[in-house]
Simulated scan of single mutants.
Amino acid sequence: MDWLERAATLRQWTSKGVRAPHKPLLLLYALGRYQQDADQELAYSAVEEDLKRLLAEYGPGNRSTPAYPFHHLVNDGVWEVRTSRGAGSPGSGVRDLRASGAAGRLAPDLRAALRRDPALLGRMARTLLDLHFPPSLHSELCEAAGLELEYAETQPLVPGGRRRSQMLREEVLTAYEYRCAFCGYDGRIGAIPVGLEAAHVHWWALGGPDEVENALCLCSLHHKLFDKGVLGVDEEFRVMVAQRFVGHSAAAREQVVALAGRPLLGPQPGTPELGAIHRSWHAEQVFHGPSRPAVAV
Rank of each mutant, 00 (worst) to 15 (best):
M1H: 15
V18K: 12
H22Y: 14
K23V: 10
Y29A: 08
L31N: 04
D39F: 00
Y44M: 06
Y44S: 07
Y44T: 10
E49F: 07
E49S: 10
R53I: 04
R53Q: 12
E57G: 11
T65W: 08
A67I: 05
Y68C: 06
L73E: 04
V74G: 04
T83I: 01
S84A: 13
R85Y: 06
S89C: 08
P90N: 14
G93R: 06
V94N: 12
R98G: 07
R98C: 04
A103F: 09
G104H: 02
R105Y: 14
L106I: 06
L114T: 11
L129F: 00
H132A: 09
P134Q: 02
P135M: 09
E143P: 07
E148C: 10
Y151E: 14
Y151A: 11
T154Y: 09
P159C: 13
G160C: 08
R164L: 08
E171C: 10
E171A: 11
V172Q: 11
V172I: 13
E177G: 04
A181P: 15
A181S: 13
D186F: 00
G190C: 14
G190W: 13
A191F: 15
A191M: 10
V194G: 05
H200F: 05
W204Q: 05
W204C: 01
L206N: 10
V212S: 03
V212G: 03
E213K: 04
C217W: 02
C217R: 02
D227E: 11
V241Y: 01
R244Y: 06
F245M: 07
E254I: 07
E254Q: 14
Q255I: 05
A258Q: 11
A260R: 06
G261K: 05
G261D: 03
P263G: 14
P267V: 11
Q268L: 09
P272F: 09
P272R: 03
E284N: 14
H288N: 13
S291V: 03
S291P: 10
R292P: 09
A294H: 05
A294M: 04
